[in-house]
Design a protein around this nucleic acid. Structure first.
Lengths: 236, 236
DNA sequence: TGTACATCAGTGAACGCGCGTTCACTGATGTAC
DNA sequence: TGTACATCAGTGAACGCGCGTTCACTGATGTAC
C-alpha cells in the first residue's frame, strides 16, 4: 500500500516541489521579504488561493525554504568533508570552510534567509533545528574523528581554563549530542564556527568593501589561522 | 549670520529630529522592513506627505537611521576604549568587545539594520562609510597605540606569511588610512573584527540557542582568546 | 517701521499598487460495496 | 465490473489592509526695500 502512489498523490508531490522551486527562484531574485504567495502562484499559472492546499500560510512556505536551505548547505558540507580522509583534519576543515563560503556566494539570499536578520514576526519551529546544526556537527565531528583523537588544542594558544558554568554548559551539550570531544575542544570548535560565519556574512553583506575585498586570499588566510587555533596538524 | 536660527530653521531641525526618533522607535519595535513613512507621520500627528519636506524618500530616512546607528555604536566604543589607558591594550580590547555586544543587545533592530541582511533594493550611499568604520578603526587604533608599538603577533600563534596579493591589498589600506601598523597586525585585527561580529550576530539571531546560550561566559572566554590571537599582553 | 513679495511647511485628496487570507463553488479523482 | 458516494484540487470573487509618492492648495514665516 505505502509504495503505491495515486495520480493525485504524485501530482501533489510534484506541485509541492514546483511551488518550492518557484519560491526559491523568487527568493534568489528578490530576497525573503519580497517573497509573495501571489507572485509564486501567478508564475505557476495558478490562482493564489490554490497554494493554500499545499502550504497553510506564507510562514509555512518560508519554513520549508529555510529547512531546504539548511539541508542544501549541510549536505554539501558533509560531502566535502567526507571526501577527505579523517586523518587529515585540517584538510577537512579547510574544505568545510570553503564549501560554506562558496555555497553562500552562490545562494546569497538563501544564506541571508538562514544566517541573516531573522524575518520579523517569524518564529522558527522545532523542525528547523536539526537541519540548522549540520554544519556545526560536521565541524565538531571532524575534530572528534581526527586520527589521534581530538586535536591537542594546547598546541598553539595557551589553554585558558573555562569558567565553571561555561564548562558545565558545554559538557551538557557534548553529552546530549554525544559529541565525543572535550569541553576545551568544544569551546574552540564553537568559536571557530562563529568566526567562519562572521567572515562569510561580512563579505556577503558588504562590510569588507574597502579593506579585505576581494576576500579570497583573506579568507584562505583566516581559515588557516583558525585551523591553528583548533590545533589541527598541518596536512601531509 | 550663520549662528542666527530663524524660527523656521529651529522648527525644521527639531522636527527632523522628531521624525528620526519616531522612526527609531518603530525600528526598535518592528524592524527595518516594517518601518513605514505613513506610520511615522501618523504617530507624529502629521499627514504622510508632509514628511517629504524633510526626507525626499523612505530610503533617505533609512540612510539617516543607518548613519545614526553606526555613530551611536561608534561613539560608545570610542568612549569605552578611551576610558582605559593605552598601555593596557588588552583591557581596551575587552572593553571594545563588551561594548559592541551590549549595544547590540540593547538595540537589536538597529544592530540588524547595519550588520544584518542588507535591505533589498537599498544601496548605501558614500556618507555611511566613515561612520561604518569607526569600530574597526578603534580596534586597529588600540593595537597601534599599545605602549611598545604594535603587539608582537608572533607571541602565540606562529605567524604565517601573507600571500603577496593579500599583503599588498592590506598595505594599501594601511597606507590610505594611515593606520600605522604592519600587515600581519592588520590581518589579525580584521580577522578579530569579523570574529567579534560573528559572535554577536549568532547570539542575537538565535544560532547559539541549544549550545552556548546564555552566551555571557562563552563570549568573555572567546574575547580573551581573541586577545591572545592579537598578541595583546595580559592586563597588569 | 511698514509694506510687497518670496519662501516654505503642512494639508488633503488621489493614484496605483500589491499583499495574505477566506469562502462557497465545480469538477475531477479515488474508494467501498 | 459498475455504481454511489466521499475526497480533494483548483477557481474566482471578495475582504480589508497598508504602502510610497505626487500635486495643487493654504496660510504662516521670512526678506528686501
Amino acid at each position: 500500500m505505502a509504495a503505491i502512489r495515486t495520480a493525485r498523490q504524485r501530482a501533489r508531490e510534484e506541485l509541492t516541489q514546483d511551488i518550492k522551486e518557484e519560491a526559491r527562484r523568487q527568493l534568489a531574485a528578490e530576497g525573503a521579504q519580497r517573497l509573495s504567495l501571489r507572485a509564486v502562484a501567478r508564475e505557476l499559472g495558478m490562482v493564489s488561493s490554490a497554494l493554500y492546499r499545499y502550504f497553510p500560510s506564507r510562514d509555512d512556505l518560508l519554513t520549508a525554504l529555510i529547512i531546504d536551505a539548511y539541508d542544501s548547505l549541510g549536505e554539501r558540507v558533509e560531502t566535502a568533508v567526507a571526501a577527505i580522509p579523517a586523518d587529515d583534519p585540517r584538510g577537512r576543515f579547510v574544505a568545510l570552510c570553503r564549501t560554506v563560503r562558496e555555497w553562500a556566494r552562490r545562494h546569497p539570499h538563501e544564506y541571508a534567509l538562514v544566517y541573516g536578520t531573522p524575518v520579523p514576526g517569524y518564529r522558527a519551529p522545532q523542525t528547523t533545528v536539526a537541519p540548522a546544526s549540520r554544519v556545526a556537527l560536521a565541524l565538531l565531528g571532524l575534530m572528534r574523528d581526527a586520527p589521534a583523537g581530538p586535536p591537542p588544542v594546547a598546541a598553539h594558544i595557551p589553554v585558558r581554563p573555562l569558567p565553571g558554568p561555561l564548562a558545565d554548559q558545554l559538557a551538557a551539550v557534548i553529552d546530549r549530542m554525544a559529541l565525543g570531544i572535550g569541553t576545551q575542544e568544544m569551546a574552540r570548535g564553537l568559536i571557530a564556527w562563529t568566526q567562519l560565519f562572521g567572515l562569510v556574512s561580512f563579505e556577503l553583506f558588504g562590510h569588507l568593501v574597502g579593506s579585505a575585498d576581494p576576500a579570497d586570499d583573506f579568507f584562505a588566510h583566516a581559515v588557516e589561522d583558525m585551523a591553528d587555533y583548533l590545533g589541527l596538524p598541518p596536512s601531509a
